[in-house]
Design a protein around this nucleic acid. Sequence first.
DNA 1: GCGTCCAGGTCTACC
DNA 2: GGTAGACCTGGACGC
Length: 293
Amino acid sequence: MPLELFHKTPAHFSFRATVYSHGWCELPPFGLDEVNWRLKYVFRDAAGKKAVFGIISEKKGGVLIELANSKIAPQHILRDTRHLLRLDDDLRGLYEAVDGHDALKWVTEKRAGRLLRSPTVWEDLVKTICTTNCSWALTKNMVGNLVEKLGAPAGKGEKAFPTPTAMASVSSDFYREEIRAGYRSPYFAELAEAVASGKLDPEGWLHSDLPTPELKTKMKRVKGVGDYAAENLLKLVGRYDGLALDSWLRSQFYKKHNAEKTCSDKKIEKHYKKFGEWRGLVIWCDMTEKWIS
DNA sequence: GCGTCCAGGTCTACC
DNA sequence: GGTAGACCTGGACGC
């Protein structure tokens, strides 16, 4: 039976700014209908055995979640929705940090700053590795293959993101030949085995007591995760004191703040130092202003 | 059609 | 700790 759920949203929330916050809305099992402004996602239960296709849209005072069936408990769907739209995040510190900076006034006005994420750190971790050292088209290709070939079916051709167990059930060769993951293939096989066996718990990064540098070091122990990937993941678990500089972010900075000339990372870091623990989120908002405003 | 470059980097060996 | 070279894929580009 189809099911509709409703979740309230906080005052400083923008559905559009959150969905457009970065490219995650284009990576399966997310999908974006820009005409009707509806975000699709295939939810799954913790065991990865049940999957349900859902559509999230704005409704006065909150978001509406339309589900193809009621296979998964409503409280599980609501928890996932709250997590992926960052409904519990308190961004007052960000808005205080940009206060007084005219060029960033729009961040507060547009209620920007909530970075769309997946319901699990596991999914964000795998997707982040898929963004490294390749074009965005290839990232979409790899993530699409993972969902298509290893995800639990939700009906009508829709599939969920694969569980660690599902990803641990295939070999490194599968990642190379079927997922087209190239040199990342042994990394995925090793990572999936570690998470499926309980040796690694990425979900624990969400509420870790470790200081950010130590958590970053822990993240970098995962093969395929370097400085950029770790800092991107830190943003997705709510820590914004790393800039997560990659070639795209650097090129945008050169265009916007350095007369289209290249410069050192140190200069970029100096530019955003004044925003303190929010600097990683400030640079991201600054470089993606055109997407949202 | 073919070759080259490079994109939302990381790892390893070596110094 | 810093750096060079290797690593995969596939789209864009020049010829």
